[in-house]
């Protein structure tokens, strides 16, 4: 047992490689913030756009959303990184990863916001229109706030999932936590950097998971 601890929790190694992994940590954090803000913002805009019910827009949008929900994120990243250059568009690994994940989050967020919007009682629309608010005012002031509120628990979970996927960037050599850790591990032939990486992910995401539990319990109407 001691041997195992020595192997996986070799503090000297961890200390030695901490700066390297810290760089990765910062990069992971940056990617996460970018993906979340771009993804959720775009998703909300798309859901609003969909509310107008223009078939010429909604039909292709639905198709794209379905596509991004069905295809594994790693496949999307690989396509963005390895296939787009053939079309004359070369993305850096960082941009390819962030763009892919933001797009995927936008697709999920659009679905979640949209199902939030559609599950708001029809009476709310009627009440808004009956007091003279127009379609857009009713949507923005009455229906959307309630729809967003319904969407929050699902959205937090999905956001955490996709933020975790920033680790997929390591597959195209974005030097985020996981990539730094595997590099370090191959230099010293010791798994401790991987343990350190694991700890970093836990530090980054456990608070988010705990928060999502809280959100799930408290983000309800006071009935």
């Amino acid at each position: 047992m001691d041997q195992v601890l020595d192997l996986y929790f070799d503090f000297d190694t961890m200390q030695r490689f901490f700066p390297m992994l810290w760089e990765g940590f910062v990069l992971t954090l940056q990617m996460t913030l970018l993906v979340v803000s771009i993804g959720i913002g775009t998703g909300l805009l798309l859901a609003l756009l969909r509310a107008f019910g223009v078939r010429l827009i909604n039909w292709p949008m639905q198709f794209l959303v379905d596509f991004l929900r069905a295809v594994p994120p790693l496949v999307v990243i690989m396509c963005a990184y390895f296939a787009l250059p053939y079309a004359g568009l070369s993305l850096s690994p960082f941009v390819a990863t962030v763009a892919s994940l933001a797009l995927i989050l936008a697709a999920f967020a659009e679905e979640i916001f949209w199902s939030g919007i559609t599950s708001v009682n029809r009476g709310q629309w009627e009440a808004g229109r009956a007091t003279g608010l127009n379609f857009f005012q009713t949507l923005v002031h009455i229906v959307l706030p309630q729809g967003v509120r319904l969407a929050v628990p699902l959205l937090t979970n999905r956001t955490i999932e996709i933020s975790k996927s920033t680790s997929l960037g390591s597959a195209i050599s974005v030097s985020e936590i996981l990539n730094q850790a595997t590099n370090a591990q191959s230099i010293v032939a010791n798994p401790s950097p991987l343990t350190l990486a694991a700890l970093m992910y836990v530090v980054l995401f456990v608070p988010l998971v705990a928060m999502s539990r809280w959100v799930e319990r408290h983000y309800r109407w006071q009935h």
Binding site: I160, S170, L178, T182, P191
Partner: peptide
Amino acid sequence: DFFRAFPPLVLLIFIYNGAPFL
């Protein structure tokens, strides 16, 4: 909660690259 916070790819690499050391 641990597995909700832990990216599956990290887990996979941890197991795959880490096991030989045992």
